[in-house]
Design a protein around this nucleic acid. Sequence first.
DNA 1: TGACATACCAGACAAATGTCTGGTATGATA
DNA 2: TATCATACCAGACATTTGTCTGGTATGTCA
Lengths: 206, 206
Amino acid sequence: MSPRTPKGQTRERIYRFVRKRLLEGLPPTVREVRDAFCFKAVETAREHLEQLVKEGRLAKRKGKARGYSLPGLEKIPVVLPIPLLGRVEAGDPTTAVEDIEGYVPVQSRGAGDLFALTVQGESMTGAGIMPGDIAIVRHQPTADSGDVVVALLGDEATVKRLRIKKNRIELHPENPEFKPIIPDPDELIILGKVIEIRRYIEIPQV
Amino acid sequence: MSPRTPKGQTRERIYRFVRKRLLEGLPPTVREVRDAFCFKAVETAREHLEQLVKEGRLAKRKGKARGYSLPGLEKIPVVLPIPLLGRVEAGDPTTAVEDIEGYVPVQSRGAGDLFALTVQGESMTGAGIMPGDIAIVRHQPTADSGDVVVALLGDEATVKRLRIKKNRIELHPENPEFKPIIPDPDELIILGKVIEIRRYIEIPQV
DNA sequence: TGACATACCAGACAAATGTCTGGTATGATA
DNA sequence: TATCATACCAGACATTTGTCTGGTATGTCA
């Protein structure tokens, strides 16, 4: 028999082990816990796990393989990685697979294709959208007046506020130094609506 | 036998199902896939899964329960839910468990305690931080001059830019209508550094 | 001291799950 | 038309995994 450890100490380490595995997306089996802690008996691991469930620190699906989970985590919506596009070209932006610069985790709202792009220029600083910010965009061909949209003007993607007037469509910057753009309706392509803005102030690693 | 679906169509849906489950943290079993798609035979589900593995769209651990996974998911950093605090009180903000309004998924940077709070007021609009924005904060007792910090002034938490001068510390708003605050050093508590700003434009998160 | 809880172990059983073998029906293609 | 691949099914079998029963040793506490 292995030397006994102080009271709740091993349990704490087991909790952290399980939690780590769960966040990595691979719930451990009882036997994997046994091995990770060099127990000789499966039951030893299971007792610890059941105790953690009793304490409310873990949840479980009885009888199911890899059935332990984090309680309360189910309240958190699904997080999906969406592509951060480097260059947005004409046509369907989601097809420009070549130019994926990375992935941004976004809470899925069940709503359509999402993509992300880095804001360039200072034309929207009045709306709190600064150069370098990451815009989360839902891909859609139209939008309502007042929405902040990503539009394609010629070869360039730009972030502006959409204003639909009686006989024309306007793209409004929010910065007194810039003037509204009144594009030829035939040339205007709306790529999508900006639904979220992010600014990473301290560079994330990777 | 169920009516046959066009060529790769069901497979595509299965891929998305498995992907969703994996991102939720609970890899599905072969039988769960069978049930989700109303197949009569386990083997039907398994054939699709194995095909997806052959195509390189899924990875698997042979013979293991819930053994399918996303290849290349290692590249995506772990996403941790961090608490969105409604009210920040004196002392350790992370201990104010009562006031958790929700959770925000954030890419783990391995670095310390994170929490989130909703920005109030217009004092930082010049830095692109608008009222209603969500600030992701790393809990730390000090910060460098120039950092945007969350500081506790009396009972209220405020977001400002920190300026460390020769003989005093200043909290600078970034809005010409507000004046810098020069707090009594003994009364100033820095709760942490703002490392990310988010603005949910369309749907408020849960 | 005795009663009790904790930490651990051994081995068996049962349920969940992965894998296999052999089949049918349908569409595409040479 | 014959051939082949695909999509599906039925049932059995093997492995993984959860669960149980009963046990030993050590510490705590009345």
